Simulated assay, not measured.
Amino acid sequence: MGHWLYRNIVEPGKLPLLLALGAFVSTFVVTRVITRLIRAGKGPFGNVKAGGLHIHHVVPGVVLTVFGGFGAVASSRHGFGADAFAVVFGIGAGLVLDEFALILHLDDVYWTEAGRKSVEVVVVTAALVGLMLAGFSPFGVNEMSASELQDRGTVILSVAVNFVFSLVALSKGKGRIALFGVIVPFVALIGAVRLARPGSYWARRFYRRRPRARARAGLRAYRHDRRWSRPRRAIQDWIGGKPDTTPAQLPDAGRGPGPGER
């Protein structure tokens, strides 16, 4: 394990990226646990306020992200400095993206249906960073044996082929399949060969004069959403918490309550 870690992570200079990813995921998990405890009125935690103004955790997140990002740029590629700044950046990014929906809507939608966007963005970001770690690990490794070159060449070819299929799946309106298809073999192929979703670029371009194809695509999309919407929502609720059934009334215009103020 130690040899693999050195050859694939340390030697190519990817340790800061691994540390940033670990800090990012850990920060998101810890933050969600704390906000759910605040929402339930349990534990010693509470909202942070200054002069009556609730300070969302996106604020220290922005500060940490800026500090860690500029610090990483100023530091060398290797060494303790780069690793430390990577951890700071990962913590800041986790705090910021945990409240991505608030930034998107400029409103406190943390525990609403719109707040699910934060969970989706965090999952997508973690998957993309994981792809950077796994998919491009051959670069920067020195003195590889013939078997290592062959294995890594196979990985690169597989990623490239999956990426092409992912582009086709993306044009068919299947964003999640396109994303994970780059990482998981055959997932993008399934999305690429199946019917496009209504309203996608592929449907507008190739189904324009095919009414039967448009009808089949609409029916399949309806059945798919009906079948998988509930499990998908259950997973999102398990990760980020179940949203409120009705949006809470905001006490002040322009300033929403904190995630735990309900």
Rank of each mutant, 00 (worst) to 15 (best):
S118T: 14
S118C: 10
V122K: 11
T125M: 11
A126W: 06
V129T: 12
V129G: 01
L131R: 13
M132V: 11
L133H: 05
S137I: 02
G140S: 08
E143K: 04
A146I: 09
S147G: 10
S147F: 02
Q150K: 02
G153S: 10
F163Y: 09
L167F: 07
S171V: 00
G173E: 06
G173C: 08
R176N: 10
R176M: 15
L179M: 14
F180Y: 15
V182T: 02
V182M: 14
I183L: 15
I183W: 07
P185T: 10
V187D: 01
I190P: 03
G191K: 01
G191L: 07
R194A: 09
L195A: 11
L195G: 01
R197E: 11
S200G: 12
R204F: 05
R205E: 14
F206E: 03
Y207W: 12
R212T: 13
A215Q: 14
A215K: 15
R216Y: 14
R220L: 12
R223H: 07
R223T: 02
H224S: 07
H224V: 06
R226M: 04
R230D: 01
R230V: 09
P231L: 03
Q236S: 14
D237T: 13
I239G: 07
G241F: 00
K242Y: 08
P243C: 03
P243R: 03
T245F: 05
P247E: 06
L250N: 09
L250T: 10
G256H: 01
P259Q: 06
R262P: 15
